[in-house]
Amino acid sequence: MSSPSWPRCATDRRAMLGGLLALSLVRPAGATPEALAAAMREFTGGAAPLPGGVTLDIPPLVENGNAVPVGVEVESPMTEADHVRAIALFNERNPLPNVITARLGPWSGAARLSTRIRLATSQRLIAVAALSDGSYRMAEQQVVVTLAACIEG
C-alpha cells in the first residue's frame, strides 16, 4: 500500500468538506444584536448593567457546542438588605437571545448556579445579575466553538 501523506494539514480537502458540511447544518441565522439588546432590556427594565461583581465561568474554546458547561457567581452577602434577586444568561448568535433566567433570594445563601448550554457558533455570552437595590451587574465572555469534522448524517 502506498502511503501518501494523508492529511498533513488542517486545510486538507476532506477537512474542508467536513467543515462545510458542518456549516450547512448550523441552525438558522442567529439572534440579531437588536434582539439581544431587547432581551436584556426586558430583564433589566431598561437599566444599563454595570460590569464587575459577576464571574462568568465558561471555557474559552469548546469542542462541541451542544453541551457547554457554564457557571455564574455573583459577589453578594445574600442578606435581606443586600442580595441577588435574579441571574440571567444571554447569547449573541443562537436563534434566540435568552438562555436561562433564574430567580433566587437571600435564602439562597449564595448567588451561584451552573448549567450546560448550546452554542450554535463562536459568540459572546453575557451574564446579568439583578440586585436587591434595583441595580444590575454583568460579565461577558467570548467563546470559540470548533466545528466537528465527523458528524452523523
Partner: peptide, 9 residues
C-alpha cells in the same frame, strides 16, 4: 426557579 430556553442543553 428558572425559565429555560432552547439554548439549554
Amino acid at each position: 426557579a428558572a425559565e429555560l430556553h432552547p439554548a439549554v442543553a
